[in-house]
Nucleic acid binder design. Structure first.
Lengths: 342, 342
DNA sequence: CCAATTATTCAAAGCGCTTTGGATAAATTA
DNA sequence: TAATTTATCCAAAGCGCTTTGAATAATTGG
């Protein structure tokens, strides 16, 4: 059923029906409710493409997902979009996902821009001086960066968690518990968030007069076997650490497995602090969480990102928006005072 | 830049340009290449909505994600869409995600149908006699079910992994290793796949003359703490099992943690077999995988689902398509012969 | 009661594309 | 060379909506 047919049923012009449904004031309340009820009854909804064509708005926001970046099409993403999607759907928007092969990322953005298939995009996993930002600015496409890129000359809108501060505080917590050998199992450090986390860790150590030892620092994709292998290796070298700072729950499970295998009790023998994105399928927040963590919900981040992007879209000439959230430091079962007798 | 402007540059009619770009035979090869090159040079791409409106195809396939189903917006999903997306983008399609609150699922499908915003949908996580199937049939929207629903009177297209067979074989493997007390940590059994897995497990036991004991069977959302808690509890009751059959890697990590905490070595003291969806961020397939598993890639499933749905879309009147994959049984480090002396 | 507002409704143009049915130019055939 | 076919290209209609500008009906004021 299209507008014309529907309006014939009502014996009204398409104009009036359209206005009634879109909440324009030029139509009387009486006919408006009549139209709305009839729409429900006859299950009429305006054709998406026609509406978009006429209004110039696609009512969609885009995500470009490069297949090679496992860091992105990964567990984080599913919770993130659960958040964005929730906010978007309340505003009548949906998400358009495009999966591209390694090269095609730039092309995908150009495509979206010239085809006008989305009204804005969210950029994931920014790196230093990320080329996508300049590209989207050039294309005049509204966008919001989840995270931050460094060394950008022009301003842009972003949402981020204070990763540096979070890891600084986590490190300070461990130091205050007496730990002086603290290992860092970081994510890939060409990712901006991981670089910041490392800086926070190093700052805390330096300020406490503890030297930085690359023998107990690692940087890899955040997977379970990574946590296991790194822990096994680090714990078996001379002068092993008494604590681990781990970038995500997933490798932390590996750390835990390694410790147990080595006959060491988490917390008692070796402390662990992790960053917890509060992934829905890896819940660690019981009354007393399994891990001590710096916590920040990735789903809430998704919600906020969506809201900020919508704001940009609805206010084209506006200022760039930025927002920085602090992670919460939550004490769980995986940390304890350092063992004096080692 | 729109078609009219672009065609004026070329001093050709919109008709010819459109035909040149869409590969119609009525245009000479010479002008075709000229048009194509110019399109590249001037960065011209047809407006998506206009094209869709004219052709009646949205070039998008939809996923409806109910927020309350953690089982769906979860780790599985990100790998699944990585697969679907890859296939779709090769055919010029993209994915439209709609996140809905608990109630709104049916409305979301009706919406897609009457707005013509997608050309087809993929249904996730079917249950017994799933109402979505009848709904989409009524709406005349092409769809493909990832999994199967039971007790449906009308045929429909689906793709599934033989979950029953997989778990039957896994159970038989354990039996052949001498295990006779085998615990089952299943997913939620109102999900079709979990129900089938249970049936496979029970079949194998029954055929081996082993009685089914609900004391060592659990059915919950597949999370790490579930695996941990269930294992702790099951192992501490009288007559504990010598093996665990676990529905996913995630709870299996919890099982492992519990065993280690109880001072039991996986494989040596207690065997574990899991189902492995080969999630990209939880890789367990080293040379010799961490877990013995029934293995079937969820990403490949995503690819196949996309291909099958496209086939449906391109062949409207056609037969319903069905495909059943067998999972691979892969021996890893988590299984061993049962201990004779207990 | 008639003119001036104001509240409703509508006809028609336009969004940017595809596609039908011709028209024109070039090539072929008799 | 004229008639026919074939290869190119095009004008215009249509996809289903929004929106401008105008018309009509209802209301108000003097």
């Amino acid at each position: 059923m299209n507008l014309k047919q529907f309006s014939e049923i009502l014996k009204l012009s398409p104009t009036t029906v359209s206005r009634a449904l879109n909440g324009f004031p030029e139509v009387s309340e009486k006919t408006r409710t009549r139209v709305q009820n009839a729409a429900k009854e006859h299950n009429y909804r305006p054709n998406t493409q026609a509406k978009s064509l006429a209004t110039g708005r696609s009512m969609a926001i885009g995500h470009v997902l490069p297949t090679f970046k496992k860091e992105i099409i990964n567990p984080i993403f599913s919770d993130f979009i659960a958040g964005t999607g929730e906010v978007l759907s309340k505003s009548g928007y949906h998400m358009a996902l495009t999966v591209v092969e390694d090269q095609g990322e730039e092309a995908a953005y150009r495509d979206m821009a010239s085809k006008r298939s989305v009204d804005g995009v969210i950029i994931h996993g920014p790196r230093e001086n990320d080329s996508r930002i300049a590209l989207l600015q050039e294309l005049g496409m509204p966008f919001l960066v989840h995270g931050r890129a460094q060394q950008m000359e022009t301003p842009y809108s972003w949402f981020d968690v204070n990763n540096r501060r979070a890891f600084k505080r986590a490190t300070q917590l461990l130091i205050s518990l007496g730990h002086r050998r603290i290992a860092l199992l970081n994510g890939l450090e060409y990712m901006d968030f991981a670089a910041r986390r490392r800086r926070g860790y190093e700052q805390a150590l330096t300020e406490a007069g503890i030297s930085i030892d690359s023998n107990i620092m690692r940087s890899e994709e955040m997977m379970e076997p990574y946590g296991f292998a790194a822990t096994m290796q680090i714990m078996q070298q001379p002068n092993p650490p008494t604590a681990f700072l781990v970038s995500s729950v997933i490798p932390a499970l590996g750390v835990q497995r390694a410790l147990l295998k080595l006959g060491l009790q988490p917390a008692t023998d070796v402390s662990i602090v992790i960053h917890d994105d509060q992934l829905s399928f890896l819940p660690i927040d019981a009354d007393r969480p399994m891990f001590t963590s710096t916590r920040s919900s990735i789903k809430d981040a998704g919600k906020r990102c969506a809201a900020m992007l919508l704001e940009q879209i609805n206010n084209p000439g506006g200022e760039t928006l930025t927002e920085l959230w602090e992670a919460e430091l939550v004490i769980g079962e995986s940390t304890g005072v350092v063992k004096t007798s080692l």
